[in-house]
Design a protein around this nucleic acid. Structure first.
Length: 178
DNA sequence: AGATTGATCCAT
DNA sequence: TGGATCAATCTG
């Protein structure tokens, strides 16, 4: 079952943890690429200095201020795309960054253990920016019925946000321990 | 630890 | 219009 828009209209920290163990599915023509989400990060609200939204609404970041359940995809360091999904209510900027996935089946050679790498492997680019993650769409998240116990979720500081002052040490990165 | 790479943002 | 910045990756 595809996750409905309402799923994303919840506290971001909750969404980030609940996305672990779900399937990220990208349908390209006849091909369907299925992967299991293993690592996420939460970017929460206008005061989170690690978030693009902390400097206010701009043409790039306005998608984060919009409705929940839409993809926010941006180019970083000139070479890599990062995949985020917008959370919480309209006008509250927040999103979950999907940092790592495992391809299904696992015998696939492609590496997907980083936000840039997974976008490359799943052929995700800016064309999907601003597209919905629910309903009839080519990229979505699927509830596969897997139950993740709280003890399987590890928490850690987010990557690459040393500049974020009082927000840099928040344990807003979540990953599965196997 | 350094190089890479280019869109974005903000200050001139 | 220009320069600093950047939620990353690869190479050695």
């Amino acid at each position: 079952m595809r996750l409905p828009q309402q799923f994303y209209n919840q506290p971001t920290l909750k969404v980030a943890q609940q996305l672990l163990g779900k399937f990220l599915v990208h349908k390209i023509g006849k091909k369907t690429i299925i992967s299991l989400i293993t690592e996420t990060e939460a970017y929460v609200g206008p005061k989170d200095k690690a978030s693009h939204a902390s400097r206010g609404k701009t043409p790039r970041t306005e998608i984060m201020f919009g409705q929940p359940g839409f993809w926010y995809i941006y180019l970083i360091y000139g070479m890599y795309y990062c995949l985020n999904v917008v959370t919480e209510k309209n006008d509250y900027p927040a999103a979950v960054l999907i940092r790592a996935v495992k391809l299904q089946p696992e015998n696939n050679k492609l590496k997907t253990d980083g936000p840039g790498k997974l976008c490359r492997a799943l052929k995700i680019d800016k064309k999907l920016n601003g597209q919905p993650a629910f309903g009839k769409t080519s990229l979505w998240i699927e509830d596969n019925g897997l139950k993740i116990k709280p003890s399987q979720i590890k928490k850690a500081p987010r990557i690459g946000v040393d500049y974020a002052k009082e927000y840099k040490d928040k344990l807003w990165r979540f990953y599965l321990n196997n």
